[in-house]
Design a protein around this nucleic acid. Structure first.
Lengths: 228, 228
DNA sequence: CAACTATTCAATAATTATATTGAATAGTTG
DNA sequence: CAACTATTCAATATAATTATTGAATAGTTG
């Protein structure tokens, strides 16, 4: 094996990995699976794809070891293979937000309508979390909340928010969070609660980003190791 | 703009960014430009592509803001847009090394022939760097060394190594490094120097990885900020 | 400003990726 | 073990990506 052959092989195998992420549906799947495991049918419904097409995309992700498979009764559950996968997605997402003007524009346009511009960022949240006046609102579906959430967050799924609005107090400062910067549940929560006279902001990032904060990056290998 | 339309737009734009990286030649170009700026002709020669094809791939990278352009006399120099680009490449590379058995196998096979298995990792290097017995050997072309190198490293480009072997001492422990884990200069150096009876190992990572160590990651935004 | 040179563009052919449909499969549950 | 159900597969048509060739362009230098 000469030098050129070696490089051709390496870059070609690695580009296969990148190609596996290089599709809008597959990015959405990765983003979604960052919250919790899900069945194929579930993923299809959530992303608006056909089941067959979803399955095909999941096969692509599986072939590159980006997702892993588990059976639960009649259902097959897909989940991210490890935290590095979400971390890579987060980094690519951030490169995009930082250098592709179009991404920032689409997000700003959407949030303007929802009154959810000026979100607070995760670091600010962490430094203000001890304040007794702040209440964290996890507006994701209960299943995702159950799979993991920010400590002390109250779970009111977005579609129950209106009917359970009596549980909230106008004196508090609410921070609504959901799946991540492209999840609209928190924007919808801000829109609704602002309308009803509550003090509320959205968290820019989502639960998986909060979770990554509490992993220690072994920088020498680039791998991620659970802390505790 | 409804929820589905918003998501379709976002994931589609971001997948464009990932697609721009999702090609073996473009990964090699990113890897190469991590060392120093280069002209199109230069990149073409280094990667074994035609100039027209190289130019086409560079256009793709440029459209996604992964590279930036600068003119120098008759030449146009391409460089990485920022350190985040190399960081993403590094992370993807590491996911691949960790979870695609094939990558690890190709690398091991190649290094076995060069006697350069058992490389030392960058963290170990940092902790042993003060030892007066260790000498760092940068075996990249002089131009890349000039664009940035690990402090105190001695530059002997691989194609001058044999003729300048008199400059080396058998009592020292040499650490050869080059562009990164897929660069073979360091392997060739280890092969040659081992043969001639010197104590030598290769560094697993390359100069750009060392450089990333000394950037502070602003984890809240995912962006990278130069430290000092 | 003419000649030169590095780079890009345009057109083509070949390959690869994608969505859709409906049939096949495998695994579970009663 | 039969019936059921979630998932995958196979076939197809459409769309996107890639390498190659040779011509066009833009920018610099004498």
């Amino acid at each position: 094996m000469d030098k050129r052959e070696f490089k051709d092989k390496i870059y070609s195998v690695l580009s296969g990995l990148v190609k596996a992420m290089a599709n809008p549906h597959r990015l959405e799947i990765i983003d979604l699976l960052g919250q919790a495991e899900r069945s194929v049918e579930d993923i299809a419904k959530e992303t608006g794809m056909s089941v067959a097409n979803t399955s095909q995309h999941l096969q692509v992700l599986k072939q590159s070891n980006l997702v892993r498979v588990k059976r639960n009764g009649n259902f097959i559950l897909y989940g991210l293979a490890n935290d590095s996968v979400y971390k890579s997605w987060r980094d690519l997402r951030e490169i995009g937000m930082g250098s592709l003007a179009e991404v920032e524009k689409i997000v700003r346009e959407f949030r303007t309508k929802k009154n959810s511009l000026e979100p607070i960022r995760i670091d600010e949240l962490i430094s203000r979390m001890n304040s007794s006046n702040i209440i964290l609102l996890d507006v994701r579906p209960h299943l995702e909340y159950k799979a993991g959430h920010i400590p002390n967050a109250v779970n009111i799924p977005i579609d129950q928010l209106l009917s359970r609005i009596g549980e909230l107090k106008k004196s508090k400062q609410y921070i609504a969070y959901c799946r991540g910067p492209f999840c609209v549940f928190a924007d919808e929560a801000v829109q609704l609660l602002t309308q009803k006279g509550f003090k509320v902001k959205r968290l820019e990032e989502g639960y998986p980003d909060w979770k990554l904060k509490f992993l220690v990056e072994d920088v020498s290998s680039g791998k991620i190791i659970t802390n505790g």
